[in-house]
């Protein structure tokens, strides 16, 4: 009887382990699924549109009679909004992180960090509303030539959304810097500012860069803010005051319409998705490797 129980227990253990292993394999299948789905439709797309044309044509007009399939206008829109977002998020996020890591008391940090997390938890559709109906009218008072849809306000709001990500990851990196390094500097009479910028920041640099790269990736992939507030006009421009369209916003635009399955127009969103995936994948991997190297140094 005892033997039978033990055998049963062993079978149960093995089954559960297999089951749990399967759960973790599912993440691999998800990646595989993404790559397969994107590749399949993208392949069909490139049967009709040459890759070179896709990468060099300066117009994107799949819905017009005179069709052009150049991704450059969508890329420039994506680049522009991302750039604006990073210009907002990087300085504010980094200064905030230095402050929380080196200046503030534990008590302040414990209150501020969860509050900042709320900023990151606000649904992006809400930020889109805020950019379109609050920030754009406000900016228009300063810049009268600003269009109702524009890269500027959507980029800025996107930057605000990304601040918590930069604060949180950079602060983690700075706090991982061993106390001994700081003590050494304080012992020879440096003040907090000097310690922060001459000791801690350089030591945490790769971790902070990893945070920035991840933030860029997040900005590139952000969809609803730009779909609502940046417009739907693919234009090869770096003018932040006019409507543009990002890769992500284009995917939403087509998904909202009734583009029939199997047409070239339908496939454009997969080709766009593939470009987006490759772009963010490279950035994510870069960030991951940097972070890992940073952790290996300090842990």
């Amino acid at each position: 009887m005892l033997l039978k129980r033990r055998v049963l227990l062993k079978i149960k253990e093995t089954l559960i382990e297999r089951l749990l292993f399967f759960c973790s394999l599912l993440s691999v299948f998800t990646t595989l699924g993404i790559i397969l789905v994107l590749s399949f439709e993208t392949f069909e797309f490139f049967k009709e549109v040459p890759v070179l044309k896709f990468l060099t044509d300066t117009q994107w007009t799949p819905l017009f009679i005179n069709k052009h399939f150049g991704i450059l206008p969508l890329l420039s829109g994506t680049f522009l909004t991302t750039l604006i977002a990073m210009l907002v998020a990087m300085p504010v996020g980094l200064v905030g992180a230095v402050y929380l890591s080196e200046y503030s008391s534990l008590k302040v940090r414990n209150i501020v960090k969860p509050l900042l997390e709320i900023l990151a938890a606000v649904p992006t559709v809400v930020y889109g509303y805020f950019a379109l109906l609050f920030l754009t009218p406000l900016l228009k008072k300063i810049i009268p030539s600003l269009s109702g849809f524009n890269a500027l306000s959507s980029g800025m709001v996107m930057g605000i959304m990304i601040i918590p990500l930069i604060v949180s990851l950079s602060e983690d990196a700075m706090r991982a810097v061993p106390m001994g390094l700081r003590e050494g500097a304080y012992a020879v009479g440096s003040n907090r500012l000097q310690v922060s910028f001459r000791i801690v920041l350089p030591a945490a640099l790769s971790g902070i860069i990893a945070a920035f790269i991840l933030a860029v990736s997040r900005a590139i992939g952000e969809t609803m803010i730009v779909a609502i507030a940046a417009g739907q006009q693919p234009k090869l421009t770096l003018n932040p005051l006019v409507p543009v369209e990002t890769i992500t916003a284009y995917i939403v635009q087509i998904s909202l319409g009734d583009t029939p399955h199997g047409t070239l127009e339908y496939r454009t969103i997969f080709a766009c998705g593939m470009s987006l995936f490759i772009l963010t994948f490279i950035l994510n991997m870069l960030s991951f490797k940097l972070k890992r190297r940073f952790q290996e140094v300090y842990e």
Partner: peptide, 10 residues
Amino acid sequence: GVPSVIYGLL
């Protein structure tokens, strides 16, 4: 880190 819109395409 994959953008959510890509999950939509998946």
